[in-house]
């Protein structure tokens, strides 16, 4: 269970509040106007922003003192998800061992993960040689290896074309299904939220509202969502 308990994040004169919880394995889309605080919410959960009040709890444990790398979280950023100077194998390896001391079993898992996302045999390639879609796949493969129970997606596929984005979302759903991970995915596209299924959190007016079933939410949108959808 991921619980945001009377959470308040302050950045300058911007404040975001949230007070709700999500069950393990849930799929949650985070939707709302740009500048509304969607990324801010994910950053707080991942540990890059300290709350000014309230707590982030995982399985009842306060995460405040836990460094980002030690949280039960994998995160895909909008860009720079891979180190450009390392090979794919090394980039994935960092997900298993930050010192990159890999034994044969781990090497096999890396090869398996690359194969799983359709990048078999590309372990020696540098990210610069890959297309945007392939880079997204590699980042997902690393998340697969890390197998953390929460997967945070901060619009990592925003720069991809529509067809490719649909493909990547399907892959996200598959991988989350395999690892049993909870997915929190920022998007500005209602279609993405529908495709993900599950629930949707609306972030607007300085508040992240509690998640509601996506279909129900769009069937009967509150005023803020209607304003956003136009």
């Amino acid at each position: 269970m991921l619980r945001l308990e009377k959470l308040r994040i302050t950045q300058g004169d911007f404040t975001l509040r949230a007070d709700w919880q999500v069950a393990e394995g849930s799929r949650v889309a985070v939707i709302g106007p740009s500048g509304g605080g969607k990324s801010t919410l994910l950053m707080a959960i991942a540990g890059f922003l300290a709350p000014s009040a309230g707590r982030v709890l995982w399985q009842g444990k306060d995460l405040a003192a836990v460094a980002p790398g030690d949280r039960p979280v994998s995160m895909l950023f909008q860009d720079q998800n891979l180190f450009p100077h390392l090979s794919l194998r090394e980039n994935l390896g960092l997900g298993l061992s930050p010192r990159l001391r890999l034994d044969a079993a781990q090497e096999a898992r890396i090869a398996g993960a690359l194969e799983r996302v359709g990048l078999a045999g590309l372990g020696a390639a540098r990210p610069g040689r890959l297309s945007g879609g392939q880079q997204g796949r590699a980042a997902l493969a690393r998340a697969l290896l890390r197998a953390r129970p929460v997967l945070l997606l901060d619009e990592p596929f925003a720069a991809l074309g529509p067809a490719l984005k649909v493909e990547m979302l399907a892959l996200v759903a598959e991988i989350a299904g395999e690892t049993g991970a909870m997915v929190l995915m920022v998007t500005h596209d209602p279609q993405d939220a529908r495709r993900l299924g599950g629930e949707t959190v609306l972030v607007a007016g300085g508040e992240a509202l509690p998640p509601r079933g996506t279909e129900a939410l769009f069937a009967d949108p509150p005023q803020a969502l209607r304003d956003y959808l136009g």
Partner: peptide, 18 residues
Amino acid sequence: HGRLAEALGLRGMARLRW
């Protein structure tokens, strides 16, 4: 790359080296 390094728990000598 600072955020990614942090997210992966890359620190100390490992951060220096990689």
